[in-house]
Simulated assay, not measured.
Amino acid sequence: MSFPKIGNLAPSFKLKNQAGVDVCLKDFKGKKNVVVYFYPKASTPGCTVQACGVRDTRTEFDSLDSVVLGISPDAPAKLQKFTDKYDLNFDLLADEDHAVAEQYGVWGLKKFMGREFMGILRTSFIINKEGRLTHILDKVNTKTHDQDVLNILRNGI
Rank of each mutant, 00 (worst) to 15 (best):
F3S: 00
K5S: 12
K5M: 08
I6L: 08
G7I: 03
G7H: 00
G7V: 07
L9F: 06
P11F: 05
P11D: 03
S12Q: 13
K14D: 07
L15W: 01
L15H: 04
K16L: 14
K16Q: 06
Q18H: 12
Q18G: 06
Q18R: 03
A19W: 10
A19E: 12
A19T: 14
G20E: 02
G20D: 08
V21Q: 14
V23K: 05
V23R: 02
V23F: 01
C24F: 10
C24P: 00
K26R: 07
D27N: 11
D27H: 02
F28D: 01
K32L: 08
K32D: 08
K32P: 03
N33P: 00
V34S: 01
V34L: 05
Y37L: 12
Y37G: 06
Y37V: 14
Y37I: 11
Y37D: 11
F38M: 07
F38R: 02
Y39S: 05
K41P: 06
K41F: 09
K41I: 03
P45W: 01
P45F: 02
P45S: 09
G46M: 06
C47Q: 02
T48Q: 02
T48S: 04
V49I: 14
Q50C: 07
Q50F: 04
Q50A: 07
C52M: 10
G53V: 09
T57W: 06
R58M: 13
R58I: 15
F61G: 02
D65W: 04
S66G: 01
L69E: 06
G70V: 07
I71Y: 03
I71V: 15
S72A: 09
S72Y: 05
S72L: 03
P73Y: 07
A75I: 08
A75V: 13
P76C: 04
P76F: 12
Q80M: 09
Q80L: 15
Q80S: 12
K81A: 15
F82V: 09
F82W: 02
T83A: 14
K85E: 13
K85Q: 13
D87H: 15
L88A: 10
L88I: 08
N89P: 06
N89V: 14
F90L: 14
A99L: 13
A101Q: 00
E102Q: 15
E102T: 15
Q103E: 12
Q103I: 08
Y104S: 02
G105F: 08
V106L: 08
W107E: 10
W107F: 15
L109A: 11
K110Q: 10
K110T: 10
E116G: 08
E116P: 04
M118C: 04
R122W: 07
R122A: 13
F125W: 01
F125P: 02
F125Q: 01
N128P: 01
K129A: 00
E130W: 00
R132K: 12
R132Q: 14
R132N: 05
L133I: 04
H135W: 03
H135C: 04
L137D: 04
D138R: 11
D138P: 05
D138N: 15
K139T: 06
V140E: 02
N141R: 08
T142V: 15
T144Q: 11
T144W: 03
Q147T: 15
Q147I: 07
Q147F: 05
N151A: 14
N151T: 09
L153K: 04
L153I: 03
R154T: 04
